[in-house]
Design a binder for these strands. Structure first.
Lengths: 219, 219
DNA sequence: ATCGATTAAAAAATCGATTTTATAGAGACT
DNA sequence: AGTCTCTATAAAATCGATTTTTTAATCGAT
């Protein structure tokens, strides 16, 4: 049973966030059909806010809705992973270029701060969720200054999709070490405004995760 | 009062489609707060399917939801129009390249067919909606063979956003003539697999609509 | 045994009513 | 007059029950 906080947010948006997290974490089996009544008791909400959350999640692409047949978790397809990784790489390199061109001192300091928090989160390997959040925020901070809110929106969406695949892979300390090193290098490139270096590294960074995820995506 | 058809689609998805169309058509004032009860009577549906549709539309970006304060139509901002047009241009050129590389005979014939329907729709100027639909389908057909479903998804979303601005502009026969000519040329480039020519033209095509829309977007 | 139709059960979708929250307006005070 | 609080109203969000549709099981026929 997941307890929802009692902030001013509506029940609907709380379930949305909780369900989104769980879908990306892989708490549901790929291709599985969601049993609404069990979700109701699991997340402790009524039918209306739950259905509203499910509708938002299907518009976002983390669920599929079939008319009169409810909601299902999208299947994992190798072809789709490749599509997501490839497009993510292209869009993020595009954003990186603009961010390196437009970024100001404020952007730099937020990026350095996000990187610091990521390194700190790295120290406690037992709390994956904290690291995941710090990781997402780091990548957000890297591109935040790109100046295009629609580009950032699509990148965020692809990142969530990508993570759904990436998080299927078992933890690999060696890969993790490499990825962490790349995060540090990305900050260096950002501060030096080295666009071509940054693009190449970001591309490698995504490719490395992609290759790992690829190994766990059957069919 | 909008009458909904009686197909097998759920009330929820029918309102979604109808509302989406009306939002893009500019039937609601930009920045306006939606009065749920009046929507209920206008679209002749109950509260639940209506709210589900509104939730999907905000996840899609055609509405904004504020906690405990309902749904509102996003404001029109010149800055956002520029962002949308610019990103749309980049993503569509990316897709065009891939479509021209991957497209087969089936793609060619569907494109030619879509173009034909667009020209036919052009003949009856009184029925804007038919032309709009044919126009959307033509642009879909042009890029359909790009091979990336996520890229197509984002392009569709941007196209809808763009149209919300474009359709504010009053009809301009001269511009329309130019755009129509470009559609024909795009087909030519597609059949010849002329990627650089196609990209340049598609870029011009979007820029032309962008310039027109820009004139009607105050602030 | 397989296919098709019929029906019972389960699940999805929708409705109407209730609860909660925001908003606007009246009155009291500075 | 302006600001504050309180209250009445309106709107949003949620709940519980009903309706509709799908799914699964049963029976009969080929």
């Amino acid at each position: 049973m997941t307890v929802l906080d009692s902030s001013s947010a509506t029940a609907s948006s709380q379930v949305f966030e909780a369900l989104k997290r769980d879908l990306i974490r892989g708490q549901f089996k790929a291709g599985e059909k969601l049993a609404i009544s069990s979700l109701k008791s699991h997340y402790q909400v009524g039918l209306s806010p739950l259905r509203e959350a499910l509708n938002r999640l299907s518009a976002y692409g983390l669920l599929e809705q079939v008319n009169q047949r409810g909601f299902r978790v999208p299947a994992m397809r190798l072809e789709e992973l490749d599509d997501i990784a490839n497009l993510r790489s292209q869009l993020e390199c595009m954003a990186l270029t603009q961010a390196f061109q437009n970024g100001d001192a404020e952007w730099e300091s937020l990026l350095v701060a996000a990187h610091h928090r990521l390194r700190r989160a790295d120290e406690k390997p037992e709390q994956i969720e904290e690291w995941e959040q710090a990781h997402l925020r780091f990548h957000r901070a890297l591109l935040a200054a790109c100046g295009s809110s629609w580009l950032l929106r699509f990148i965020e969406q692809l990142h969530d999709q990508f993570d759904r695949y990436r998080r299927m892979a078992p933890p690999n300390p060696e890969v993790r070490r490499q990825l962490d090193a790349q995060h540090g290098e990305l900050v260096e490139y950002a501060l030096n405004r080295d666009i071509s270096g940054g693009r190449a590294l970001l591309d490698d960074h995504i490719r490395l995760s992609h290759d790992v995820a690829r190994g766990c995506c059957d069919v």
